[in-house]
Write a protein that binds this DNA or RNA. Structure first.
Lengths: 298, 298
DNA sequence: TGCCATTGTTTCCGAAATGGAAAAGCTCAA
DNA sequence: TTGAGCTTTTCCATTTCGGAAACAATGGCA
């Protein structure tokens, strides 16, 4: 059967994009990398990597093999951690992908609290608003906001996401508050990235509103700043503007309407028989942190 | 990182129950087995096997490690099969556990049909009525009849299980047919193994009947023979007595009552990200064979 | 266009590992 | 008590492994 070292080397070559780079990070000479990749391909009877001297790309078989190998390697890691008696302790590196705004506001501040309980654990956190392929990119888990769809992943709900219409008191004083949904047409609305149609639910059922306003941006951070500065009405998540609502910097408008409810904040991870302790513990930590009623809702 | 051969050797030692036996099946001398088990334990810092010279048993850490290693090994097998270009073809050995009666009557006759389409595949079929731990015992999948509960396994429904009350015409001629449920008290009933209370659903809702009769056995085959021979009334699955009902060897009694409906025939397998082709294909084969309406119901 | 740095591949050689035979120590059953 | 069968250790031959060096190929840059 295949040598395990070959699988590690293959995975590293793919993740670094070059044999030489893989050799450097693993402490091998390029010659070794080349020979073992070749051996692996010979044994499988398939070409895994398409290579020129300057560039390496995965063949189709290589891509599928890579996906599987990643799972195998983390499986071995988990099995070793289990047997080493630290089955219930987090160790190694936990690689997390999370949305930028939410990560900055509601994950980053709590990391130290988690890390002090798990001294053997290193955290790698990547904030991005792309829906990365967590398995191909080598993440252990991701925090996501959205509707739960992806089939090959397991999702654990962390908290509901409530989205409200809000504006600054200043803006209301100048423009008045809308009293019914149609009034929005006479207001400045602030759509955000991927959010240029607002799915709302209210007393009369649900509808989709196409907000129009003077500001278009792909940055929800800019929208956030704008609504606080009094530029208009925005549909924002409670985790985003909870403190401003409490302090009075923002007030809710049209409180009978809320954003569609099928959004959830969830942790997703590749489906495995044995979840690594580090992943389980971190998700548990987030779940108790946010649940049952998130602190930003209180 | 751990050598893969060590994991294979460890798994084989556990499954054969001895180092020497593992060595014989793998083609190694006992010395090698011993050394590599020791090396594995040293690397993990844990004792995996408790051993005397005559007997070997798993420690707790060893048990958990073994469960994980099995998953890893089949994962590697699957990854190799995928990369070898035969991703959609079944190859290797498919190990199946199935209930004795059902296996004999409705799996065994169809095996050749499956095997002629998959010449690279070997089948290992174990018929048993124990609910074995399929992962610990090294099965790829099992066919089961029952309520779906086990959490760490994935179940795919193959067919519903209908159970009817039946007797031979001969018996009816001698004893008359019951017309309402209470009449059963005046009849010979034939309970089977694990089936000494009959959960029935009928026009008046559901009830549990405790059958009493002259024959008690743990063999549903004996019950089957007895009811055909005219010994009494039994609650049997349609897959078991379909032909007899059609041929008139048996007739249904109290047709307004049926066994509780929450039994299903299903295929179960360990949850994995990548299901081996051999498992997927065999389950597909059974599903099309039995569904949507099983041939024994027609 | 031509140069050059970087990358992948091959060859050869010393070093490390692997596997086996033999011997020793042990346990259980006859 | 004996003997068969098991695990473990030791020692040695063999295989495998990793690296240096030489070579070939590619693409960026002047």
């Amino acid at each position: 059967m295949t040598n395990l070292g070959d699988l590690e080397i293959f995975a590293r070559v793919v993740s670094t994009g070059s044999m030489s780079a893989a050799g450097r990070t693993l402490g091998f000479s390029p010659a070794v990398i080349s020979k073992r990749i070749k051996r692996l391909e010979d044994r499988l009877g398939t070409r895994l990597l398409q290579r020129t001297t300057r560039q390496i790309s995965l063949t189709e078989a290589g891509q599928g093999f890579y996906d599987r190998v990643l799972g195998i390697l983390t499986g071995i890691e988990e099995a070793e951690a289990y047997a080493s008696g630290r089955s219930s302790q987090a160790q190694g590196v936990l690689r997390i992908s999370a949305p930028t705004s939410f990560g900055r506001m509601h994950i980053a501040p709590h990391l130290t609290g988690f890390m002090k309980d798990h001294l053997d654990l290193k955290l790698h956190i990547v904030l991005t608003d792309d829906f990365t392929d967590i398995v191909a990119d080598g993440f252990d888990m991701a925090v996501r906001i959205g509707e739960l769809t992806d089939s090959s992943l397991v999702a654990r709900k962390l908290a509901p996401v409530r989205r409200l219409l809000c504006a600054s008191p200043d803006y209301i004083a100048r423009n008045g508050a809308p009293t019914e949904i149609g009034d929005l047409a006479r207001h400045f609305c602030l759509p955000a990235h991927n959010n240029d149609n607002w799915k709302l639910e209210g007393p009369e059922g649900s509808l989709v509103w196409h907000p129009e306003g003077p500001l278009v941006t792909n940055s929800s951070e800019i929208v956030r700043a704008a609504v606080i500065a009094g530029a208009g009405i925005a549909l924002r998540s409670t985790w985003d503007i909870g403190p401003e609502l409490r302090s009075g910097q923002l007030v809710q408008v049209l409180p009978q309407w809320e954003g569609s409810k099928n959004l959830t904040l969830s942790a997703v991870y590749p489906s495995r028989q044995f979840l690594p302790a580090k992943v389980r513990l971190f998700i548990d930590y987030l779940a108790t942190l946010y649940g049952p009623v998130p602190y930003w809702e209180q």
